[in-house]
Nucleic acid binder design. Structure first.
Lengths: 267, 267
DNA sequence: CGACCTGTTGATAATGATCAATTAAGGTGG
DNA sequence: CCACCTTAATTGATCATTATCAACAGGTCG
């Protein structure tokens, strides 16, 4: 069984086997957190680096008037705060959306990893991808039409979840409520609801509960103006053409019904 | 004369004198680019790392329908693409807004810098601050009211320009058109225009041409819900309380009228 | 069963976008 | 220095879109 971190880093990097082994050794088991747990709060000082092993979490910021903006999703293999030893305080919060398994790494662990050049580079890459995603989101929220915003985030979550083995074929579990989607794309829940309805009517997606199927991926990506290049996968181009490579379960760890399932193969 | 890079990095880090000297040695003179020059284009492959020494540039993405989203401003001391050797292709473009002086650094130069632990950490810090700014922008565009969006970006540019010596007291040159502001905060130019008018009427800002004065900084930051913590300056808290520390000229290198002036002191 | 959360719907109200001029400012060339 | 040109800022009127409000349906969970 390959840790999702390794799987994730291998999306954009090649790593010597020894580095993968080291990662496995350092990462260990992690603790299981119920949905809704605050993992990190804005203003927190550095202590540990948190890494999501299972489940889905999100970053967010709040406004004084109570409005919320979700500024990132964390899927298995994503670091919450790799930079915690460089920036003194968190400028945003992170909460578990589903049941999550999260490891806490000490500064010494991180140092051990970054001593290996390939690993240091891979970790850097992962933080740069986070930044690239933010840029694309800003474009999404600032300049895309509402329907396309929603379609775009659906595409992104599909690609990212697929990359860590949480899609089967063209189906995956959309692990968030419409209200959360609204807070990620800068709309109201009503608008998100109608955007999704429109997408269903146009047969761009099919929905059974929270399981979403994309019958025609090129059609959806075209509608959303989604180009996976910004995810900086090594094989991003190929994936778009032939995207049914996901081999594992859509439900593991991401549903309301906590799943214990760990059988997903790493890609 | 201290290079703006050094000034910038010292905002959030302490560096040994030797590291500052090395930076100076590596950075050198740079080339002068006229306003509007495309510095880097989306899809470009890695070649050099670009660093802005003078002037103002911006990152942006375009939509197929021609809409533009500005996703970052680069002030003196900012790197355009520090990560160019990690990510294969640029996922956005960068253009000079005013006349700019830009240096191109080879991979070997960067390697030389990152061999020094303090410098490596400082460069990492600078890239993390870029990311933090993106998060705040996403909140701005996604969830703040139009007037406050505009006020917020005015605050940010003031603080960042002040930090590199481009403010005098509470005045600075806002180096962009209203149309560019619109593309950064996700509004139309008409809305931005009216927001600025409102801010003038409320005496939150005063404008003479492109020179903006903030008569009451706490009032403006309160209105904008601007908390400089996300810029991760070491002294950010203090700056908010006592912000009239800028010592240099508001116009150097940032106006339509190209300024040759280099006398600004580093802070 | 009843409380609660999520998704859905229709009606209405605001809010920004759009459109179309007009004014202002800066830069150029005669 | 002035006429002229271009770009940027400003204005008012109108339109479209999205937010808001309110209510209800379906499911889950004690």
């Amino acid at each position: 069984m390959v840790s999702p971190v390794v799987a994730k880093l291998l999306r954009g990097n090649t790593l010597p086997q020894a580095d993968c082994d080291l990662l496995h050794a350092v990462v260990g088991a992690g603790r299981r957190l119920p949905p809704g747990t605050e993992i990190i709060n804005q203003g927190d000082a550095a202590e540990f680096v948190h890494l999501v092993l299972e489940g889905l979490a999100y970053r967010y910021k709040l406004l004084p008037n109570g409005k919320r903006q979700i500024i990132g999703y964390l899927v298995p293999g994503d670091f919450c705060d790799l930079y915690t030893f460089v920036l003194e305080r968190m400028d945003h919060s992170i909460a578990a959306r589903s049941e999550c398994v999260v490891v806490r790494l000490k500064e010494a662990d991180i140092a051990m990893l970054t001593e290996r050049p390939a690993l240091a580079r891979a970790l850097w890459w992962s933080s740069l991808v986070d930044e690239a995603i933010l840029r694309e989101w800003l474009l999404n929220v600032g300049r895309r039409e509402p329907d396309r915003r929603v379609a775009h985030i659906v595409c992104e979550l599909f690609f990212r979840l697929q990359a860590v083995g949480h899609a089967s074929g063209n189906s995956f579990q959309l692990p968030v409520t419409q209200s959360e989607l609204a807070d990620t794309v800068g709309l109201t829940t009503v608008s998100v609801n109608r955007a999704l309805q429109m997408m269903r009517r146009a047969n761009l997606i099919t929905q059974v509960g929270r399981i979403i199927t994309i019958p025609d991926i090129p059609a959806l990506t075209a509608f959303a103006d989604f180009d996976p290049a910004y995810l900086h996968f090594k094989t991003a181009g190929k994936r778009l053409e032939n995207p049914s490579q996901g081999r594992s379960l859509a439900t593991a760890g991401l549903g309301e019904t906590p799943a214990r399932n760990r059988e997903h193969k790493a890609v």
